[in-house]
Design a protein around this nucleic acid. Sequence first.
DNA 1: GACCAGGACCATT
DNA 2: AATGGTCATGGT
Length: 286
Amino acid sequence: MSPRYELDLPVSNYDLDATMTSGQVFAWEQWDNGWVGVVSANWVSLRPHAGVIRAITATPQSDWSWLTTFLQTDVHLPDLLATFPTDDFNLQAAVKTCHGLRLLRQPPWECLASFILSSTKQIVQIRQIVRTLCARHGTPVAVPAGQHPAFAFPTPEQIAALSEKELRHCKMGFRAKYLLSAARRVVAGELDLESIRQLSLESAREELTKLSGVGEKIADCVLLFAYGFPTAFPIDVWVARALSQFYFKGRRTHPEKLRRFAARHFGPNAGYAQQYLFHHVRTQLA
DNA sequence: GACCAGGACCATT
DNA sequence: AATGGTCATGGT
């Protein structure tokens, strides 16, 4: 394929708005009926049209696999949703209200760092922190004429070179020492983010939770959103509320019990089910 | 001015 | 094993 700035990706059952606002990614901006972000150091705008997502880049591309991987456009959603328990009324309601919601496939470092920053923060605030961090410490990327400046997510090297105080100036509070420590461990080779890919879910979770500031919930976010482990099942306050409300008569239930329930109830794509429940309760029932 | 947020960690029971 | 306090910060 000759290099070009524009590509129409054929899609069906793909709701870009729901996907971008469902708390997976924090560095994308809504613009002109679509979204603008940076993937693999490429500025890209995405706009839904009939049957396609139209992607426009700032520099000519001959290989678009970085984008199709990120968007997971090859995933056939109906087949995936068909693995959900059919007798689960609440989950089926979530599937209906969140029609076209997708899981993205993010670069591990950006995902890990973002979710280290997410701890007990609202999504709007996480977006603010990530935006500030990228603008101050990320490498600028080429943008089309007339567009706002855009920045890649800071690499582990870029963050490891900073001080905790500099990071705190990005309003991340006590999370600064966690982010700095994670970046330095990656740079030192003590944590190999690529090798995690080939581990079992349990071993991978164990590796990630060795980082300070990374517990089971944040680890599962990274395992699901970056590595694509289909049964990783992050349980935050919203998902915990949804599970307790839908399956435990509203009784507050210990996280470990919720975990075991999720593992046996939701099937081979439990992580996807989790994302539907999360977005459903946040947009419909909140 | 409370109250809460895609939590994790540590000290007490 | 199970609670309770603490950590920063800003939106609602």
